[in-house]
Every structure is written in structure tokens, then in C-alpha cells.
Amino acid sequence: MPDLELPDVGQAAPDFSLPRSPREAMTLAELRGRPVVLVFYPADWSPVCGDQVTLYNEMLPTFDEYGARIVGISVDGPWCHAAFAKDRNLEFPLLADFEPKGDVARRYGVYDARHGTTERALFVIDANGIVRWRYVSPIEVNPGADGILDALDALAAKGDTA
């Protein structure tokens, strides 16, 4: 399957349906009506990813203040996600882009075919499903959350958060 380009700011974010647990799926469309932070990360259990998701987990009250939902996506399977989330006390959904592997990451232009993982990429999507900010981080760098908060601020200033 050919990889697509990164969706541009102003374009609709490609919809998807991915397992959020061994038994349930989650779609992007069902999150419509509030800003969504999509976090593509290479792998459960890797040191940088662990730090990154720990930070976002700590920031859940802040994302709540913006009315935003945060969702992680990697190519790990749902049972792997479940074990990782339990180990790190994660309280936001981790979606499994597992079969076909990396399909959603490819549609967002952030699949790293050489390593067989997603890249480390962030998307902020507004309440209408439009990409408002995106950032692809060097794979070894935890991008933190300052860019996400600036993007959510910009949405709030335009009255797009709720």
C-alpha cells in the first residue's frame, strides 16, 4: 500500500477504526465535537515512548480543561497495549494499528517502513475533524507537550474547542 502524505493543516483528518482494547474499537469520528490530540509513537515499553506517555498521562487534567481527548497510536497489539497501560497506570486510550500493520500511520504519512513502526508524530485535530497542527519529532526525541498546548490555545482562541 502506498504511503500517503502527511495531511496538511486545514485538511480533514483521515477517519479510522482501531482496537482500543482486545474487545472494543474506537473511531476518530466518534470523538467529533471536541479537539483530539493524536499521538503516534514507535513502541510500547521503549524508554522514550514511556517518558512521553507518562508525561501526557500526568497532563490529563490539563487536556480536560481544553475539553480535549488524547489518544495514543502504535503498531503494538491490543494485549500489549493493555499490559503497558496497566504497568504505567495510563488513563487514556492506546489504539492498536496492528492489522493491517501501520495502516492508519500510512494514511497519516507517518509510517516508518525501515523500522516497521510509526514515527513519533503529533496531530491536533479540531472539533470538526480538521487537522490544525502537526509535528513529526526526531524518533529519539520526546517532543513534550508545549506544541500541543500552543495548538489547543489557538483553537480555544478561535472558539473551536467545544
Binding site: 517518558d51 507518562t54 508525561l55 520526546n142 517532543p143 513534550g144 508545549d146 498546548l149
Partner: peptide, 12 residues
């Protein structure tokens, strides 16, 4: 302190 850190890019 925490929020200010996040704004300054503190990531761990």
C-alpha cells in the same frame, strides 16, 4: 511549576 515546565518543553 509543572504547568510552566510543560510550557517550556519539559518532557521528563
Amino acid at each position: 511549576d509543572f504547568q510552566g515546565g510543560v510550557r517550556s518543553g519539559v518532557n521528563g
